[in-house]
Lab assay of single mutants.
Amino acid sequence: KKYKVVEVKENKDGTVELVVENENGEKKKITLSKEELDKLKAGDTVELK
């Protein structure tokens, strides 16, 4: 499934919390490390299994 990044929030521990949404409007929260996030920004599309 493809999800669009709608919100990006940095946590104090250096991880980043993303809120992503698919075309049905379903939202998910995922947490990434700073390194994983470096290639993402709001409006990008991510694929989740």
Rank of each mutant, 00 (worst) to 15 (best):
E35T: 12
K1W: 04
E17V: 12
S33F: 12
A42M: 11
E35D: 11
K39T: 14
E7G: 10
K28R: 12
K2C: 15
G14D: 04
V16D: 00
G14V: 00
L40F: 14
K49A: 15
D13E: 03
S33P: 14
G43Q: 04
K29D: 03
L18G: 00
L18D: 00
V5C: 15
L37H: 08
I30D: 00
L37D: 05
V8L: 08
K39C: 13
L37C: 15
K28Q: 08
V16L: 06
K12T: 09
E21Y: 05
K49C: 15
D44V: 02
L48M: 05
V8N: 01
V19P: 00
L37Q: 09
E17I: 10
E23T: 07
S33R: 14
T45G: 03
S33A: 14
K2Q: 09
K1S: 08
T15Q: 05
K1F: 07
V16M: 11
V16C: 10
L32P: 01
Y3D: 01
E7I: 08
E47A: 05
T45Y: 15
Y3W: 09
E47Y: 13
T15H: 06
E17S: 08
K41R: 09
G14W: 01
E35N: 13
E23V: 08
V19R: 05
S33L: 14
V19M: 07
V19G: 01
E26W: 05
E26Y: 10
L32D: 00
K39E: 13
L40H: 08
G25A: 05
V19C: 13
L32K: 03
N11E: 04
G14E: 02
T31E: 05
G25F: 05
D13Q: 02
K2G: 03
V46S: 09
D13T: 02
V6I: 12
V5W: 02
L40V: 15
T15S: 07
A42K: 08
E35H: 14
K27T: 07
K34W: 13
E36F: 15
V19E: 08
V19D: 03
N24H: 11
T31N: 08
V6P: 00
L37N: 14
N24G: 09
D38C: 14
D38W: 03
K4V: 12
T15F: 05
K41M: 07
T45D: 13
K12M: 10
N11I: 07
E17Q: 09
E23S: 10
K12R: 08
K34L: 10
N11L: 11
L32T: 10
K4T: 12
K41W: 06
K49D: 15
E47V: 11
T31R: 05
E21L: 09
N24C: 15
V5T: 01
D13S: 02
Y3N: 01
K27D: 01
E47I: 14
K41I: 07
E23P: 05
K4C: 15
E23Y: 05
L32H: 01
V19F: 09
N24I: 10
L48K: 01
K4E: 02
Y3T: 01
L40W: 11
E36V: 11
E23L: 06
T45F: 14
E36A: 13
V20I: 10
D13C: 09
L40N: 04
E36L: 12
K27V: 11
G14N: 06
V16T: 08
N24Q: 12
G25C: 04
E21N: 01
V5H: 01
T31H: 13
N22D: 13
L37I: 14
K27L: 13
K41C: 11
D38G: 15
Y3Q: 01
V8W: 09
D38R: 08
A42R: 06
E36H: 15
K41D: 04
L32M: 10
K41V: 11
K27Q: 13
V19N: 03
V8D: 00
K34E: 11
Y3V: 03
E23Q: 09
V20M: 06
N11A: 07
T45K: 04
V8P: 00
L18V: 07
A42H: 10
D13G: 03
L32G: 15
E26T: 05
K12S: 11
N11M: 10
G14C: 14
E23D: 08
K29N: 08
V8C: 14
L18N: 00
K34T: 09
E23N: 04
E17W: 10
E7N: 07
V6C: 13
V19S: 09
L40P: 14
N11W: 07
L40K: 04
E21F: 04
K41Y: 05
I30P: 00
K49T: 15
D44S: 03
L32A: 07
K41E: 09
V5A: 01
K12H: 10
K12L: 08
D38T: 12
K27W: 10
E7D: 08
V19T: 12
K39P: 14
N11K: 08
E17R: 05
V19H: 09
K29F: 14
V6H: 04
K29V: 09
N11H: 14
V6W: 07
V16A: 11
N24Y: 11
K2E: 06
K4N: 03
K49H: 15
G43S: 03
L37T: 15
T15V: 04
T31M: 10
T15I: 07
T45V: 12
N22E: 07
K41N: 07
I30Y: 11
